[in-house]
Write a protein that binds this DNA or RNA. Structure first.
Lengths: 232, 232
DNA sequence: GATTCTATCTCGCTG
DNA sequence: CAGCGAGGTAGAATC
């Protein structure tokens, strides 16, 4: 399709009909909002979703080179004889403008999708695994609560060990770095502060493995590590 | 069917030609790798990029419901009479399988895109801003190094204050939570340990704003905060 | 390759 | 609405 006017009408009609619209062609892109960006001419795929999402994809990469999140208002204009897709949102105020020097194709698809994605191997699965078999953490460990609130946030699993000490368990589904140790340390520190008596509070990081620096941090903070993979 | 066979050939031809290929139709999706997932039938857009990226998009959301990162091998098969796109990668081993019960359209696009995206308003811009006008942090602040290495990682900006104390500056381009305070604290702690003499080490978080919990953490750790927006 | 950190992160949940 | 943390985070820089 070489006619910008016809392209504009096709895009607008698709948007009005609540369809998923794709435009392939040579375009440049301007974004302004939380940051701002400019992108010179190139061949790209523009995807406009009925929920107000916009995606500009190049020939490379998982991530769109430019985008607009769900909830935006899209508009197809004719600006200086070019197809111009203008997308706006508020809080924060952000605008995306895609100018097509040429349009190779506009496609419209009516979509119905009622299926839910079911994922396994998540942190929630790891939590269930530990709750079903607390001895995986250590012999005598007894979980008492999940998502237990502290001043520093919610603890993944809170419980007691065989000696009656309080235990904070932080779960991670994959190999962890220093950030997870900091997270665990914040919870342990908060709980020590909150327990007025002399209760000992232990912190245990449960994950498949830790990096070297994270391991050093654990040692420094007197925290512990238990190697455990998420099930499945 | 004849349909599926033609679709398979179109997809395979596009992949062979190094083109960007899109398939719209009713499909189900299986993923197995770092985690695993199942997705029942629905109308979706499959995007196959010449760099080995695969994206499955529904009618909603910024994120693809399933995907495969760059560097994968895509293959278009005919399985039980259906178009079946099979994508594999290694390290980690991951597979994505998309089975189309029906194909509404297969589109192929030859892509050339040489333009670079230029973004502004990033953390790097904020760093330049501070280095050009160190007094934005505080009067008398003198930057001495960027990305200065410590046992806990690289410090954004390292310098000295008017009294000759060491100063660690952690930059964030937007409002920050507890994680950033933890990061700054790790750097300050590491530097205090590394400076054998009695040098005072101050930690300053530079960001547009902080959350309440982050503010409390800053106070607890004896760290400071300076409000500063990224330029532009 | 592994590690670390940024990101217009997105997303979901909770208060 | 903001805050907080998970994510198959992805991507980049560095070692």
């Amino acid at each position: 399709m070489d006619d910008a006017s016809a392209a504009r009408e096709a895009v607008e009609a698709g948007l009005d009909a609540g369809e998923l619209v794709t435009v392939f062609g040579r375009c440049r892109v301007d974004y302004d909002g939380r940051a701002s960006s400019e992108l010179g001419p190139g061949d790209r795929l523009l995807v406009l979703k009925p929920d107000g999402t916009a995606l500009v994809h190049t020939d490379e990469g998982h991530q769109p080179v430019n985008w607009q999140p769900p909830g935006c208002d899209h508009e197809a204009r004719l600006t200086d004889g070019e197809l111009h897709v203008h997308s706006v949102r508020t809080t924060p105020e952000e605008t995306l403008d895609v100018y097509f020097a040429s349009v190779a194709a506009v496609n419209r698809y009516a979509v119905t999708d009622d299926s839910e994605l079911s994922v396994s191997g998540t942190e929630a699965d790891l939590r269930e695994h530990v709750l079903e078999s607390p001895s995986l953490v250590e012999a005598g460990f007894e979980p008492r609560a999940t998502e237990r609130e502290t001043a520093a946030g919610a603890v993944d699993i809170y419980g007691v060990d065989a000696d009656g000490n309080a235990v904070v368990v932080e779960l991670k589904r994959r190999r962890v770095g220093p950030d997870a140790v900091g997270q665990l340390d914040r919870y342990v520190t908060a709980l020590r502060r909150e327990s007025h008596d002399g209760t000992t509070v232990r912190g245990i990081l449960v994950a498949p493995s830790v990096t070297e620096r994270a391991s050093e941090l654990l040692a420094e903070q007197g925290l512990e590590f238990v190697a455990l993979e998420p099930p499945e």
